[in-house]
């Protein structure tokens, strides 16, 4: 009975994972086993460390803002009458359901260095045009902004589900005890949502760390390599420069970082689960 499942797991997860590990330990021509040579090489490169730093800035700041925006909008929707909630939920989910490559292209048109729609509005209002993609720091801001726009609805929907599962009696009891809205949020809502928040953050962290489309379409890693993240840098090394093993090694660097994050977050989730149980 489990055979089809085992075949799927082996074929689509175990084999590709081990193959990429194997690939990362080969020389450039893929003719010789070089152990951890590719990893050692990467660790000795300044540009790679810049990519590590940028990936961390990109993922952590994007996840932080997605979580905040998701939490606020989930509350706003939860406070609406049940009848009107569906259309708001539907509208706010739109960024998440549009294919990312397509929406990134639309954003690129808005940021376009020569014909930016945003800059057209800004200059029309008498303000200065913003170098959205040509200045490295604005470019970093832009890629994070698009990621937040795309990913916030995921947080929204998860948080909304969590909010709906908080028993109403807890809020009633708190109200009788004289708790204000902030106290109800801090002492009831947040503790009840902690597991969902943790799991959502973990999922989003994994997806954001591995993000490729947004950076590739908006900046291609530039200017001055200052927006590269692991996936785009791995693509540059592996596909564009033809060094597949080095590209594989670059992308595998994400694995220990995410594994450690996953261990801590899931341990917290289990611990809280046991406490509740």
């Amino acid at each position: 009975m489990c055979l089809p499942l085992i075949l799927v797991i082996v074929g689509l997860i175990v084999y590709p994972a081990f193959y990429s590990i194997h690939l990362s330990m080969l020389n450039k021509a893929q003719t010789r086993f070089i152990g951890l040579g590719n990893f050692r090489f990467l660790l000795s490169r300044d540009t790679f460390w810049m990519v590590v730093e940028q990936s961390a800035i990109f993922a952590l700041s994007a996840v932080f803002f997605k979580a905040i925006i998701g939490l606020i909008t989930a509350h706003l929707i939860n406070n609406l009458p049940t009848k009107g909630q569906r259309k708001w939920r539907g509208m706010l989910l739109v960024p998440w359901v549009i294919p990312l490559a397509l929406s990134s292209l639309a954003w690129w048109w808005l940021f376009d260095p020569t014909l930016s729609a945003f800059n057209w509005v800004l200059t029309g209002l008498g303000l200065r045009a913003i170098p959205w993609l040509s200045d490295p720091y604005w470019a970093r801001f832009s890629v994070i902004l698009v990621n937040v726009w795309y990913g916030a609805p995921f947080f929204l929907i998860m948080y909304l589900a969590a909010l709906k599962s908080v028993p109403e009696q807890l809020y009633e009891a708190a109200a009788i005890d004289g708790a204000n809205a902030w106290q109800r949020f801090v002492h009831i809502t947040l503790p009840m949502m902690r597991n969902i928040i943790a799991i959502t953050v973990l999922f989003s962290l994994i997806v954001t760390f591995a993000n490729f489309d947004i950076v590739q379409i908006l900046t291609g890693g530039g200017p001055r390599n200052m927006t590269h993240v692991f996936a785009t840098y791995a693509f540059l090394l592996g596909i564009r420069s033809g060094d597949l093993p080095l590209g594989a090694a670059t992308s595998l660097f994400m694995f220990p970082i995410l594994a450690i994050a996953a261990i801590f977050i899931l341990r917290g989730v289990r611990k809280r689960g046991r406490e509740i149980g």
């Binding site: 260095p113 993609l133 040509s134 530039g222 200017p223």
Partner: peptide
């Protein structure tokens, strides 16, 4: 040159001329 040249892809210069 325009300050945006740092963000141009391969079509950036084409657009610049055509504009």
């Amino acid at each position: 040159m325009p300050p945006d040249v740092f963000a141009w892809d391969d079509a950036g210069n084409n657009r610049w001329l055509i504009s």
